[in-house]
């Protein structure tokens, strides 16, 4: 997955999540991560962050090469079918 994809997916509600409804406060519109707990931008990012992170964890496993034990099992299943 490219770096921006998780952000894009989180923003498009691909998993069936309702996007958070946020008020826009003057002074925080251009916030780039001030960390203020009252900052709506940072709160919104935290709300999306868990979803991005969850997908990163999941996708990291999806991208792992399959251990050889899986190929061995598939060969055994195939062999059992032909026997």
């Amino acid at each position: 997955m490219i770096d921006g994809e998780a952000t894009l997916m989180a923003g498009t509600d691909a998993g069936g999540f309702d996007p958070p409804v946020m008020e826009t406060h003057v002074g925080h519109e251009t916030c780039n991560g001030c960390g203020d707990r009252n900052c709506p931008h940072c709160a919104e990012q935290a709300g999306k962050g868990w979803l991005q992170g969850l997908r990163q964890l999941y996708d990291a496993v999806v991208r792992e090469p399959l251990p050889d034990s899986f190929n061995q099992l598939l060969r055994q299943l195939d062999q059992a079918r032909h026997d």
Partner: peptide
């Protein structure tokens, strides 16, 4: 959370 949030399944 895994099914909907990561697995891509609908509710």
């Amino acid at each position: 959370v895994l099914l909907v949030g990561a697995g891509g399944f609908s509710y």
